[in-house]
Design a protein around this nucleic acid. Structure first.
Lengths: 110, 110
DNA sequence: TCATTATATAATTATATACTTATATAAAAC
DNA sequence: GTTTTATATAAGTATATAATTATATAATGA
């Protein structure tokens, strides 16, 4: 159970098409910034700024690997159960990642 | 299952503390504008404008009774299942209405 | 070492948002 | 009939938001 204020903050964050898509993607698999730029067809700074907001609120974590920064959904976040039950309603299950893979643009480390 | 865009629209609407509270209240019981003004301690135009946004998106319905306009949550809305599973996480179950009743300010028609 | 690639961030700008104040309308109460 | 109560809405204002452009940094690769 969350307080209204806490819930509103999460909903406001996810109430943006770009951030909601990023969150849905990261719920399926980790991604680096350039993959998200490719998928969402948006400028790199725009993506980085959205990721910043998600990170500032603790919703995503970042890991640096070689020249890439990989983002992952913070499934330990107190509000992750809320996020998950929202994403359960969204029909966006890894299609973009599949498409990226088919284009041979998926970045796999190690 | 909803599209990303549709979901983002709903989350943006509920991503405001005032509208989220209104929605949580209306999920429990119908309310007129002046009750919401009393509960939320905000100006009447501010409340009316939030209700307008919810109404414009089909989330609430209004019924005129005597001098009051009663708002109710539109539980037939395609996105109501999403809304309900969000509200399931919110610890805001009619406390404000109880307080209003104790103050003798609850407006009961018929 | 120099060019390239991946990323972050600052500055700017345009637009959206939420609130206030003022006003209009309609029903109820006196 | 005039006042009061409940509500909606328009206009104005302040702030927030999301994008672009420009720039900085750090790692990779030639």
């Amino acid at each position: 159970m969350y307080h209204i204020e806490e819930t509103a903050t999460i909903l406001k964050l996810l109430g943006d098409k770009t951030r909601l898509t990023i969150t849905a993607i990261l719920n399926e698999t980790d991604c680096c910034v350039c993959e998200l730029v490719d998928i969402l067809q948006m400028s790199q700074p725009a993506i980085s700024q959205h990721l910043r907001k998600l990170k500032d609120n603790g919703l995503v974590k970042e890991t640096k690997k070689a020249q890439w920064v990989f983002y992952s959904l913070n499934k330990q976040h107190v509000c992750y159960p809320l996020i998950q039950s929202i994403l359960d309603h969204v029909s966006n299950k890894g299609e973009e990642i599949d498409r990226l893979e088919q284009k041979g643009k998926r970045i796999l480390c190690e």
